[in-house]
Design a protein around this nucleic acid. Structure first.
Lengths: 206, 206
DNA sequence: TGTACATCAGTGAACGCGCGTTCACTGATGTAC
DNA sequence: TGTACATCAGTGAACGCGCGTTCACTGATGTAC
């Protein structure tokens, strides 16, 4: 029995020990979407992927769950950055709103398991403490509400309750993002058509 | 070390051996929602829950995955029965349509992990072979399309593309069903309000 | 400049656990004669 | 009616595995003198 190590990885220089932390999070992220479920992110698999011995992880994380949490936290930051970037690349309010939703769909298509785990699926309830208004889900929801308000103020949408509309668009886009990669045989309409339809009708765009 | 058995369960009478099959599926179903993920449905846990030795399961299922599949299959049948029952309890086409969607939400609220696993979450792609038009997801989608068409034919809805509208309602209701139990701190609008809103606008109800 | 030493970034062996699965088996029950 | 026997519904011990985690450790590197 040989415990084959990935010898290509050199030891970090002094003071650079926390570089391993990043490598661990990246490796865990790769495992998540390659294997399709959070249970595949085992400390031993992560260590193999990084090219390190399993106990080395304990210098940076207290336990296995903390590694998964770190992956989710990082991915949420990336998701919000993608939404903002997509939105800011457009000028018209309606286009900005749609671009933001499309960015979510792109993220979910690229990393379907990431996206599901970020939403706490399939667990029955979010085990993480409420982080309040800085919680990533709250941030991205606020971006959506703002996008709708911009359409209304530009006179492009009639929407008596932007919060209700934003909630509806959120559940629709999350549902689409989750279902589409998992039901490839379903006769999906073209992406733009479905997205325009539900954003248009739910936000009351005229 | 004692392998404690649940002695309360009597051996099935001759010819009734397949009763154990049902007990296994029920026990696995209970474990699914109690523990919040499909990995908790281990053969040993199921056997403990039923009050039987683990190898006894092999008389009825070829392997662990077959047990989970049987749970999902049974749950899909129950879900469709619930949709039909809810729909048939109403008379107006709009009410029938909404009642069907609400039945899905009730199911997901009662058995959140079941519902997620039925949709293949959080795996990246549905591993099951396509069962074609008899697939439960196809059946429930058709119920939705029919419900919209009934509204249109009754002159209660203006909907140029029922298939597109049904797809939008499906992703919205599934998204809502998945998110609501997992984000209890989100300021959800009242259930009836959100459901009426997205069904009303997406199906073009006047 | 040389060298002892503290520090840092890891390692390797080991632990106990629960898992899926295999295997030879047991003991009650119905049935053929 | 009595009894041998086949069948059925399950059992119990064991296998090898990968896991999370603990522990004492190592060896390169920068630093103080």
């Amino acid at each position: 029995v040989t415990t084959q190590q990935n010898r290509s990885r050199p030891r970090n220089a002094r003071g650079q020990g926390s570089k391993l932390r990043d490598e661990i999070v990246s490796a865990a992220g790769r495992l998540l979407d390659e294997n399709g479920n959070a249970e595949a992110v085992t400390l031993r698999a992560v260590a193999r992927e990084v090219g390190v011995a399993a106990p080395s992880i304990y210098a940076h994380f207290p336990d296995r769950e903390a590694v998964v949490r770190a992956v989710v936290d990082r991915s949420y930051i990336e998701l919000i950055a993608a939404i903002v970037a997509a939105r800011d690349a457009e000028t018209g309010p309606v286009e900005r709103l749609e671009a933001g939703v499309r960015a979510v769909l792109r993220f979910a298509a690229d990393r379907p398991t990431h996206f599901a785990v970020m939403l706490g699926l399939p667990g029955s309830s979010d085990p993480e403490p409420n982080r309040g208004s800085t919680e990533p889900a709250t941030v991205s929801f606020q971006l959506l509400v703002d996008g709708i308000n911009d359409c209304v103020q530009a006179g492009l949408a009639h929407c008596p309750d932007p919060h209700l509309a934003a909630t509806a668009i959120m559940v629709a886009s999350h549902g689409y993002a989750l279902l589409k990669p998992r039901k490839p045989t379903f006769p999906w309409p073209p992406d733009e058509r479905l997205v325009s339809y539900f954003i248009g009708t739910l936000a009351g765009i005229e």
